[in-house]
């Protein structure tokens, strides 16, 4: 057999970290989907060669620290308001690729108004929406997308629809808005899912280049710390519980 050292040579490299990612160790917990999606965003920016043209907007939540990991100009935004911030950036700098990167508490709870209106205006931006059904950064509280029966620190006996309403399928709402051009729900738990998710992100960024309006990508994600499961078990739980409710696929592609 070939010696490993014979294989590990620059000319044989087929996959490595994107140059758009910094060398900082990500602050996310082991197995966190944020890391995968950060990587995919970075790879798309690198492959499209748009580092100079990309401006990211990352609001409060675990990914508020995205600016430490993505080597592009980034604005940190207040909780829920990234779509408003990105609106101004996209309008004042129409030659740029502007994206927001938001969690479910941010996008589907406190920032519901901002996301609906930015999408309804058809702002020429990419929205990346990480849905893990929980507030990660603040310690695992119930999110608008928490499933019925899902235990969280503020629904310790499981989410009860009578008490807390039903999980919000905001992506379905967004798909109805004429301003959106591409609305899809993806995941990133298997190599196949990662490939598809990357394709969707690529298409979304290309849509911005083609001035097609808002492209919206939900990534059904895990939060092993919040769910109190190992990363591997979290993926299994996601497949078993999240994906039947948040079904993967394109909701709109115009």
């Amino acid at each position: 057999m070939a010696d490993i050292n014979e294989i590990i040579k620059e000319e044989n490299l087929v996959y490595s970290k994107s140059k758009i990612l910094t060398d900082n160790i990500m602050s996310y917990c082991p197995g966190c989907t944020h890391g995968v999606v950060h990587k995919l965003v970075a790879e798309v920016i690198e492959e499209m060669n748009i580092q100079e043209k990309t401006i990211g907007v990352c609001p409060v939540g675990c990914s508020v620290l995205a600016y430490k990991f993505l080597n592009i100009d980034i604005q940190q935004a207040s909780h829920g308001r990234a779509p408003a911030v990105a609106t101004a950036v996209a309008r004042l700098k129409p030659d740029k690729y502007v994206f927001t990167y938001q969690g479910d508490g941010d996008l589907a709870s406190i920032g519901t108004g901002e996301i609906i209106h930015a999408c309804n205006r058809g702002e020429n931006i990419v929205v990346i929406f990480i849905n893990n059904g929980i507030y990660g950064m603040t310690g695992g509280q119930m999110a608008p997308t928490s499933l019925i029966g899902m235990p969280t620190s503020t629904s310790p006996y499981g989410r009860d629809a009578k008490l807390a309403g039903n999980p919000l399928k905001i992506t379905e709402l967004i798909a109805q808005l004429p301003g959106t051009t591409f609305v899809t729900r993806q995941a990133a738990h298997t190599p196949a899912a990662v490939r598809k998710c990357k394709k969707a992100i690529l298409k979304a960024f290309e849509n911005v280049g083609n001035k097609k309006g808002t492209s919206f990508i939900e990534v059904v994600s895990t939060c092993s710390s919040g769910w109190k499961l190992s990363p591997v078990k979290s993926n299994e739980w996601m497949v078993e519980h999240m994906l039947p409710f948040y079904q993967l696929g394109d909701l709109k592609d115009e």
Binding site: V57, Q75, A77, S78, R81, A84, V85, A86, T87, A88, V89, L92, G113, E114, H117
Partner: peptide, 8 residues
């Protein structure tokens, strides 16, 4: 939203 647009 308006003040956050100003921020952006």
């Amino acid at each position: 939203a308006a003040i956050n647009m100003v921020y952006g």
